[in-house]
Design a protein around this nucleic acid. Structure first.
Lengths: 125, 125
DNA sequence: AACCGTTTTGACAATCATTTTCATTTTCTG
DNA sequence: CAGAAAATGAAAATGATTGTCAAAACGGTT
């Protein structure tokens, strides 16, 4: 529901990179929208609750969001330069995480795995 | 150098969990120290620059620190209940990350991998 | 011990992302 | 269309972190 939420979702769909709330706000305002920053935060939170967008934290603690193609469990390969993101799979990693947890008596294992690098385009400068 | 920095380092050494700046501040003040919060932030930053402490972000974006036993590359298995942390190794994961990056033309690959779970003690309640 | 330049420290203000509050507007539903 | 419920935006409140700056602690030197 809600027009704003769809608009925010749409912005994310059109971007291959993770985007911050401020970032989305700036783009939408530039496009003539009168949306408020608060609404964007609410939309992102709702989209995330519904599993429609993924969120991760940058090194400086800012939350960034992305509309991923799949809702299945996956990881990200993110370009440090332009933010270009590729969704990747890591069956071995899933198994490893479970095993490591079990070996130390931990249960209800979850994990976060993100891979960073410089994409081919950015490497050229 | 600096007394405060050693004091902060010492607090971390005595904890198996990741700790926040505020958290460390509260403990030191309770112990009678007159240290300021600013100094703690500076100490943590310096210790991190020197590679003496690891840092990671909680889900709500707070930075938490830990003095790890090894300075070599490793990952963490963290208890969601008490924060108890075990340093773990994942050779397969390193290889996987490199391969995934290379497959997509990315260079200068790095990665973050953290495993969360409930430790045996916390599972008992 | 008194002196002096350097480093460290801590109180306080400033920043920045995010959340809350609250009154207004929009959307639904009957 | 009325009236209730949900959504919105502006502005204030939070909370972590950083910047500022003057006071305090050091270190080495007479």
């Amino acid at each position: 529901m809600s027009r704003s939420r769809d608009a925010v979702h749409e912005i994310l769909r059109q971007s291959a990179a993770f985007r911050s709330a401020q970032d989305i706000f700036t783009e939408m305002r530039a496009d003539g929208s009168k949306i408020g920053l608060t609404t964007i935060y609410r939309a992102l939170q709702a989209l995330n609750d519904d599993g429609r967008v993924d969120v991760l934290r940058t090194d400086d603690g800012e939350a960034v969001y992305r509309a991923c193609a799949t809702s299945a469990h996956h990881h990200h390969l993110v370009c440090r330069g332009c933010g270009l993101t590729v969704e990747v799979d890591g069956p071995d990693v899933e198994v490893w995480a479970e095993r490591v947890g079990a070996e130390h008596g931990f249960t209800a294992i979850t994990h976060t795995v993100e891979v960073f690098g410089t994409c081919a385009a950015c490497a050229k400068g």
